[in-house]
Design a protein around this nucleic acid. Structure first.
Lengths: 408, 408
DNA sequence: ACCCTTCAGCCAAGCTTTGAAACAACGAGG
DNA sequence: CCTCGTTGTTTCAAAGCTTGGCTGAAGGGT
């Protein structure tokens, strides 16, 4: 009900400082005057805040820009070297890690794969730890200047003093991943569901730029979504909001790997699509061949399916899939009334590339006029890097908000 | 992305003042010390803010309470007489209006009905205007001391400089209701969808008290929801969020009055339930008899149906309905991860009274473990008055936030 | 009586933003 | 070459806020 927490003067200062920093970060470089206009702060306050940021080495002055006849504006920019962030994508078959500077320019990458189905925690934890050390060494970056590590994982991440992961589909049951990693590194860690990290990447740098309310629909082997409200990701009471893939679109429908029936994921997840194509006879009772096919196979198989222009069966299946996907999207539109729906994930992009018009049309038919009119349905604009990139934005977010500048 | 708007000192003061006021409003009466603990403000600041509120006549001191051995605390309370708010429920067959004092104690009521199906705007507008004048006269309240009028209407309310109503099911197409009402009254008006007003009533005073994230599911003839996030109602980009009734639960299912197929409303809306019972033969293609049955008939018919303990057909239908409702609720739980789901609306309460265990069990089966574990599914605790009461909270909300005290 | 506890008001100190005025840096024009 | 106008940035005094610490106020215990 109440829920404000401001109170003190210092908080006010931090908020203004944070507003300036966010504003600069997403529109770089900029003059002080411009920042004032964007944040609503007076020129004097901008000067004060900027001086502080300059002193701390968070921003720098980079050249100047002629004004029409007056004193030229000094341009400010974020100092790329001031700090670094690391993004980690804990995927189904491998760990991808990238170290970025403060402006999210890549400095080093590592990519460690383990056998498919190897969800043994020790293996995963070691891979993450190794990759962290690898990128740090590779980029020759002092660990003390790393602002934090963002880690995108499959499954629900229960935030708390130490994040715990519940991955119902990869059989992780209350895994204390943060504590396990803590044994290998002292870097600040932030864990988050990988759909949410992708969502944040698209929101900051992709198709979601500037949206204050959006739904990022992620389709891979599994299906998820991240819901953006007020410009940041909505987590719900338990951090498990956005489990779009397990909303029911057909009561008593196909069995889903979550154990329920008729879930969206059981129709439009990559695995489900392939199952529906190859095993139409046992449609409503597939124990599925998930464990036997690796992700890479799945990817090429789906690509092949999408490319079967001369097969009526494949065409019909894809049309049906677009219809289901449209229903799922329409449900998001009716419930959330987002200004944008962004279709992401490797399977989502694959399907969307071909079926977007059909998906849009289905979404329109299944949603109410008013909310649909306010929405655009688009494809994500970031590639498969988006999970890592989004993960890296997690510590960055903290930095932009709190912005406790460490020593440079 | 950025989206803060604070900046100035005056804003900070207003926020603190508002925090105190909210805190006091929902836990009345309270001592200053207690307020300090609740808001996190220092005793000195509480004193300052409270003095201001006392000076403006918004709060008063009411007696004192012994402390264990020390100076007794003076108790503060909201001054009921300081202002008044009016709630209006524009229903399907009548307009209900209530005038409350600042503590939401009823001071006067009016209830004007028009023939069923009379959605002619002139009739409705006149009824609202008449009822406003009636309650003002009845309570002998000076219009200048009315803080505002909240109006709950069926359909989507597009907020803007002048609210416009889109009621797809009652055939209101972009009705400029606020402007039409403006011709009859000078009171400040706030329009909102009636599901959202009910939701706010339950949130403030009913089963949702204290919840910061909740889903209020409203079932009457139509089906809607209001989604609460961060303690306040989520509206989406277009104010049309929460159209739960028109999310699809069965692809290619029953036709819905919105024009689509397989909507939740087409299964669990009161009209739909009755249709499914009386006309099972034409299940998938009912043009429905909606216009011919008035709401009152529907209510008693549904009550009769629910009471048919000895009819296996009725029992099966109700069980099926609970299943569908469970699916709809599970979808809310998976997507939103609320800490509470509250079932409201006359039909919702009727069904819930008998079927709540079945509904809960269905919701559990169709939702993921983790989000379900964090949720409770309960019945609304407010009666049919909740729409009016919730409508009255709309201006109250503005008052508690801004709290520009007018002259007492 | 005396001390102790608890609540409320007061005041100087230390923040903050702000608006106006001053300063800086440049082009244009005489 | 100098001056003026224009635009961007900084400085400075003023006003407002919260904060702790201190002082009263009002009662129990002992």
């Amino acid at each position: 009900m109440q829920g404000r927490r401001s109170g003190t003067l210092r908080d006010l200062r931090r908020e203004n400082r944070s507003a300036v920093l966010w504003s600069l970060y997403f529109d770089r470089p900029r003059s002080r005057q411009d920042l004032g206009a964007a944040t609503g702060l007076s020129p004097a306050s901008v000067t004060n805040v900027v001086r502080e940021l300059l002193d701390e080495g968070i921003v720098t002055e980079v050249g100047s820009q002629d004004s029409d006849g007056g004193r030229p504006r000094r341009l400010l920019d974020v100092c790329a070297e001031h700090g670094f962030v690391i993004g980690v994508d804990v995927g189904e078959t491998r760990v991808r890690t990238t170290l970025y500077d403060l402006t999210l320019v890549e400095r080093a990458k590592a990519d460690l794969s383990y056998g498919p189905g190897e969800y043994d925690m020790d293996v995963v934890v070691r891979a993450v730890a190794d990759s962290l050390h690898a990128v740090l060494a590779d980029a020759a970056v002092d660990p003390a200047s790393v602002l934090g590590v963002g880690i995108g994982v499959p499954g629900i991440v229960e935030q708390g003093p130490e994040a715990v992961v519940h991955g119902q589909s990869v059989h992780w049951d209350a895994v204390p991943l943060e504590r396990l990693l803590r044994a290998h590194t002292d870097l600040p860690l932030r864990l988050e569901n990988c759909a949410k990290t992708t969502g944040q990447a698209e929101l900051w740098f992709g198709a979601g730029r500037g949206a204050r309310t959006a739904a990022v629909a992620l389709i891979g082997t599994g299906v998820g979504a991240s819901l953006v409200s007020g410009g940041s990701i909505y987590r719900g009471v338990n951090s498990s909001a956005g489990e779009w893939g397990h909303t029911t679109i057909i009561a008593d429908g196909r069995r889903c790997r979550c154990g329920s029936y008729g879930c969206l994921e059981a129709y439009v997840g990559a695995e489900a699509i392939l199952d529906r194509f190859t095993g139409p006879a046992s449609a409503s009772d597939s124990t599925s061949t998930s464990e036997s096919t690796s992700a890479g196979d799945e990817e090429s198989a789906l690509a092949a399916l999408v490319a079967m222009d001369d097969s009526p069966a494949a065409q019909a299946l894809l049309a049906q899939t677009a219809e289901y996907l449209g229903i799922g999207i329409a449900n998001l539109i009716n419930l959330f009334n987002p200004e944008r729906v962004i279709l992401c994930g490797w399977a989502g992009l694959l399907l969307g590339g071909k079926l977007l018009p059909a998906i849009r049309s289905a979404a329109e038919r299944y949603s109410l006029r008013h909310p649909f009119a306010a929405t655009t349905v688009e494809l994500g604009r970031l590639g498969p890097e988006s999970v890592v990139l989004g993960a890296a934005t997690l510590p960055l977010e903290g930095f932009l908000n709190g912005a406790i500048g460490h020593r440079p």
